[in-house]
Design a binder for these strands. Structure first.
Length: 481
RNA sequence: GGUGCGAUGGCCGAGUGGUUAGGCAGAGGUCUGCAAAACCUCGUACAGCGGUUCAAUUCCGCUUCGCACCUCCA
């Protein structure tokens, strides 16, 4: 049984799907006006983790992630580039999917774009108008009336006086009736240029929050299981989504809301507005891999702020090499045997610890501790030659089972079995002869030469083991770049 | 001002009213021709001050510091 933290109740709750067919999950997606930074990807990695944990528990999943392709920033970007909106957003959408693949983030079932769902939004706004929860202002905009919806604030736990009291100086560009009201529909403005649709309330474009409510209900129904996003979306975005959806349907919108904390750099939030962010592409160009970045993102609990450092990436690289060594050794020990039915006791214990950690509100640090317990025990058993091939195969399958959630064991490993170039093969052969002749000076010299060619050689009982010197070495890339 | 969250050993980062988190880095050791890998051992970690308790890093209060949200933000 999974337990997850519900932002609505502010407590951990047992997770039970509303319907047996599939867990319905809505995950707030990117605004496609730029390359996403790794702070953004912390959220998407968290959502991927949630998805994988659900699958790990045997649930089927119906996940929707929106693409916000119309808002102030996309419109501004398109204007500055002098191209139509879709032309501007298309490459960022493509880049987003490439980045997801780089991080081994599983694809959602549906990626609806806001601009493809105007009818759903207009219908939703219409219902809110009918119910007296929205009003049209003189400038052709439509606003949600917070004062007409008493439940407003139940997610953020804000009351209306708080809404007004502290707020920053408001930039009242629109004619709202009261301060907390938010736009469902924005009347056409000169800045919008060609970006406009017809509506019963005049030409304009959707407000900031309506797309998620409309598209979530379009694909997941009026009430569904899980809705996630970064903590900064909790208010106002998610609060407004609830108001829009529940205001229109009179039914509960989402059973459980989950939010992940921010990624920090030097103790501060990594964000576009602060300009202190790295895109995934920045890190790749510095020599890090998506696999290593994924590991770093997995190594903290999603509800805790995570301080991003290059040292953490360094540690990730070495830690993953440790896992790789173990998996390779297990594969060799298994020798293609069919896995035995029973796991060794220590592996069964690791499996239990791993499962309990994942199901305890996605406690990945604990889950990784279980992974490393499995690594250590596997290495010990192999050192003592106490692991039968069938047992090694069974343990190996446990690694794969864990990898359903982690997505970091098999994924993105450097190719270490590539063809050995002639100059490498020649030195390996020469070194074997030198060792046989106990000519250690020659053997050491050849090992150094191989290292400079990018190949690592290790002497084992069975003879020399040669591997390409890829991701397994300690990083020098950071300091060099 | 309002609302939350946090402060753990050199770094990252879990957790717990009394028993090893884990990874990385460091020290020592075993194995090895040497090295690597692997395994073993080690470091008097829980911001400060009070309180509750047989016992607190863990509960309560206060203080200090930090972060976030309060209509751009994952």
């Amino acid at each position: 049984m999974m337990q997850v933290y519900n932002s609505l109740s502010r407590s951990k709750e047992p997770f039970t799907p509303l319907t047996p067919d599939a867990v319905r999950l809505y995950t707030c997606g990117p605004t496609v006006y730029n390359f996403a930074h790794i702070g953004n990807f912390r959220a998407y990695t968290f959502e991927d983790l949630l998805r994988r944990a659900l699958l790990f528990n045997g649930y089927r999943v119906m996940q929707v992630m929106n693409l916000t392709d119309v808002d102030d920033k996309t419109i501004r970007g398109a204007r500055q580039a002098g191209v139509p909106l879709k032309t501007f957003t298309a490459p960022f959408i493509q880049a987003f999917f490439e980045d997801l693949a780089t991080l081994n983030i599983q694809r959602a079932e549906v990626y609806p774009a806001a601009t493809d769902h105007l009818p759903e939004m207009l219908e939703l706004i219409g219902k809110l108008m009918e119910r007296g929860l929205a009003y049209r202002s003189d400038d052709g905009s439509v606003y949600f009336s917070v004062s007409a919806w008493p439940a407003y604030g139940k997610l953020a736990h804000l009351d209306r006086s708080a809404l007004r009291a502290g707020a920053r100086v408001s930039h009242d560009e629109y004619e709202k009736e009261s301060y907390g009201d938010f736009a469902l529909w924005k009347g056409w403005d000169e800045q919008d240029g060609e970006v406009a649709w017809d509506s019963p309330w005049g030409r304009g474009r959707p407000g900031w929050h309506i797309e998620c409510s409309a598209m979530a209900m379009r694909y997941l129904g009026e009430t569904f299981d899980l809705h996630t996003g970064g903590i900064d979306n909790l208010f106002p975005h998610h609060e407004n989504e609830i108001a829009q959806a529940e205001g229109a349907t009179g039914k509960p919108f989402v059973a459980c809301w989950m939010h992940c904390a921010h990624l920090r750099v030097n103790g501060e939030k990594m964000s576009k507005s602060l300009g202190n962010f790295f895109t995934l592409r920045d890190l790749l160009s510095r020599g890090w891999t998506g696999r290593e970045i994924r590991y770093v993102l997995l190594n903290g609990h999603y509800r805790q702020p995570l301080n991003f450092t290059f040292e953490a990436l360094d540690a990730a690289r070495v830690s993953l090499a440790r896992v790789d060594e173990c998996v390779d050794a297990l594969a060799a020990a298994a020798g293609g045997s069919a896995p035995s039915d029973a796991l060794p006791d220590w592996a069964a214990a690791a499996r239990t610890a791993f499962t309990e950690a994942v199901n305890d509100d996605l406690n990945l640090p604990e889950a990784l501790a279980a992974l490393f317990a499995l690594v250590r025990e596997s290495n010990t058993a192999m050192r003592d030659a106490a692991l039968a091939p069938q047992s090694a195969a069974a343990v190996l399958s446990l690694f794969d089972r864990m990898d359903m959630v982690l997505g970091v064991i098999r994924f993105g490993r450097a190719d270490r079995d590539g063809e050995m170039p002639p100059e490498v093969a020649e030195r390996v052969r020469a070194r074997a002869e030198a060792r046989a002749a106990r000519d250690w000076h020659a053997a050491d010299r050849l090992r150094d030469e191989l290292a400079s060619l990018g190949w690592e050689v290790r002497d084992a009982k069975e003879g020399q083991k040669v591997k390409r010197n890829g991701a397994m070495t300690r990083s020098t890339a950071v300091t060099a770049s």
